[in-house]
Structure formats: structure tokens, C-alpha cells
Amino acid sequence: MGELIRVIANPSFVDKLLQQTLIHLSLSGAAVALAILVAVPAGIWLTRAPRLAEPVMTAVGLLQTIPSVALLAFMIPLVGIGTPPALLALFLYALLPILRNTYIGIREVDPAAKEAGRGMGMTSWQMLVMVELPLAFRVMMSGIRVSTVLIIGWATLAAFVGGGGLGDTIMTGFAMVSTGHILAGGIPVTLMALCADFVLGRLEKVVTPRGIRV
């Protein structure tokens, strides 16, 4: 604890830490946002082409099993060092929970509601917008939440490929065998992940229509 206080007593270090926090946040945010943009439409599309769902889900799941440091390393020959490999790797990790929850959320909408909608003359688009998405929303949101928390943690590794963020401070801590540095980098990451979980959890509740709240 004393070590931590000694490290953060230095104002220029605090400045650096704030900057790293911002980078960390924007890197995670961008990765999740990109993943939502890709995985939500892809998940919806898979519910329309269920035969492809299994292979696509397996392929995306496979990405998840590649050790994160290795995945980051793979990115370097492809897109160089710095932010791009970090962003790309985090984006790939963020895909699966969102894709899977979008697909499952929509597929598990009560068949009775779908049959009623179709029988009443909804077009496929109306069915999606008026019935399937609202009813799948909660499951989709929880996929986004899982992804976000995961990515905030994993973004620490961005430092390995020069992507910056709080991982820099933690790596410095390793190099200098300084518990203070490790804590100074690690605690904000943890707090960020907890905050994101809390905020997205609240959001999920607020936007869930009253009729399907449990």
C-alpha cells in the first residue's frame, strides 16, 4: 500500500495514468462498438440462415480459444504495431458473446408470439423490429455486457503490441518489480470493468419493456 502511495504521489505519473486510462477506455469502447456493429447484424442474419449458424459460431468460438498474447502477436505481421493490432484482436474477442446472444436471443423468442405475428400479417422486417428484437433485447444486452467487461480486462494486454493503455503501467511494474506500479495500473482496470458492468446492467433494466421484466 505504501508503495502504491509513493508511486501516485508523483503528479506527472498521475497525469500519465489518466491518459492511459483514457486510451484504455477508448480502445475497449471502440472494440466493443465495432463488435456490436458487426455481430448484431450477423447474429440476426444467422437466425435467417440457421444452417450457417453452427459453422459460423464454431469459427468465432475458435478465435476465442487462441491465447490472447498469441492472438496479439499474430496481428503484428498483419497490421503492424500500435493501436491497430490491439484494436483488431480485442474486436475479435468481443464478437462471440454478442453474436451468440443475438442469435440465441432471437431464436428463443416464444414461437407462439412469432406464429401470431406471422398469422396477423407482419412482414419479416416488421416481425424483427416489432417482435423479435424487443423480446431478444435483454439477452443481447447481456452479451454486450459480458463482452465489455471481458475486453476491458483484455485491453491490458494491448501494451504488449504498443497499443498503450493501463497495461503500460502494469508492464512497467513487472519490469521494475514494483508492486506500486502494478496496483496503480491494475486497480483502475478493475474499477472500470466493475463500473461498466454496473452501468450496462442498469441500462439493460431501464430499457427492458415493463411487460417482460422479471
Binding site: 407462439a112 408470439a113 401470431a116 398469422g119 396477423m120 423480446l135 419493456p209 411487460g211 417482460i212
Partner: peptide, 12 residues
């Protein structure tokens, strides 16, 4: 159209 499972939309 009326079905056995009723099929009201729970979010409406």
C-alpha cells in the same frame, strides 16, 4: 387469427 398458445406480445 387466434391460436391455442394465445401468442399475445408480452412486451406490448
Amino acid at each position: 387469427y387466434v391460436i391455442q398458445q394465445i401468442g399475445l406480445f408480452p412486451h406490448m
